[in-house]
């Protein structure tokens, strides 16, 4: 099983996690920029964070045979702090970088006017830089937040198939399925979605435009949730082709729109057989 985790916050994870992810089949991932546990209070601290996402963290991932990409954006929670607003001015510099494959995470937290201004401004940046968009849906008042996010995306003129609406569940999936946007699901140990409920949704909605992520971060979370979802799919009667569609080909298709996805072998791992015309490694690490 080859896995591309389209949403995981590796900055918060250990090298043990990287090793376990590789052993479970993870060969590529996208780390969206987001809030960290401690609220930030100046643009400078974002610069160092973004530098890590295009510098240190990809290097760390390389050591474990995993390709690291990221998304860059000013998240909705910190959009409410006027001291962080200047982050918008430094975003274009990062959106031009090789490893940056989308703008995000954008969207709403408490659905304030400030959040909407920052969301809209960054949708404009995504259009200028021809990058896909990763939209976070709020933990509180989720249905209203999802609906309002879809309205803002529609008004931006960005084609829906360039946008993923993330952290969906049984009550929000319909709205997004009808919109033409990609549907993202974060599988967590206790909150958001789990793998069995995910399988039920895949039965109902099919595998097209579906993205499954672990969204593992500094909270209680599990970086192997993507692999567990694949196992649950197989146990429920989906075949290997379905699993490969959801866990690999879909995230590749979505982020490939950036023109910046690099999926060749990493420094530490030899290149495996080609698959579907693409030279990404699959299977186990040599010698393991």
């Amino acid at each position: 099983m080859r896995i591309f985790d389209p949403h995981i916050h590796m900055t918060s994870r250990t090298t043990d996690d990287y090793a376990a992810m590789h052993a479970a089949g993870v060969r590529a991932l996208v780390e969206p920029s987001f809030w960290v546990g401690q609220p930030r209070t100046s643009p400078e601290t974002f610069v160092d964070y973004f530098d890590g996402l295009v510098g240190w963290e990809p290097f760390r991932a390389d050591q474990f045979g995993i390709r690291h990409h990221c998304t860059i954006g000013l998240n909705p929670k910190e959009a409410n702090d006027p001291r962080c607003r200047e982050v918008l001015d430094i975003l274009p510099r990062y959106l031009a970088k090789d490893g940056v494959v989308a703008v995000g995470e954008l969207g709403y937290d408490a659905m304030t006017d400030a959040e909407e201004e920052v969301f809209t401004a960054q949708l404009d940046l995504a259009r200028e830089h021809e990058l896909p968009v990763l939209v976070h849906t709020p933990h509180r008042d989720k249905v209203a937040g999802t609906r309002r996010s879809l309205d803002v995306v529609a008004a931006s003129g960005i084609p829906p198939h360039h946008v993923v609406i993330d952290h969906l569940n049984e009550v929000t999936v319909d709205l997004v399925a009808d919109s033409g946007c990609w549907m993202g699901f974060s599988l967590y140990p206790d909150t958001k979605m789990d793998e069995d409920r995910m399988v039920t949704l895949l039965r109902e909605y099919g595998t097209e435009r579906m993205l499954i992520n672990s969204a593992a971060d500094w909270g209680k979370s599990d970086p192997l949730k993507t692999a567990r979802a694949g196992a649950a799919m197989l146990a429920a009667g989906f075949d290997h082709n379905d699993v490969d569609t959801v866990l690999w080909r879909n995230p590749v298709a979505f982020y490939e729109r950036s023109g910046k996805l690099v999926l060749d072998a990493t420094d530490t791992v030899e290149q495996g057989a080609t698959f579907a015309g693409n030279s990404v490694l699959r299977g186990a690490r040599p010698g393991s």
Partner: peptide, 8 residues
């Protein structure tokens, strides 16, 4: 200063 790892 503003480069990613490859630019640096």
């Amino acid at each position: 200063r503003y480069g990613d790892a490859a630019e640096k």
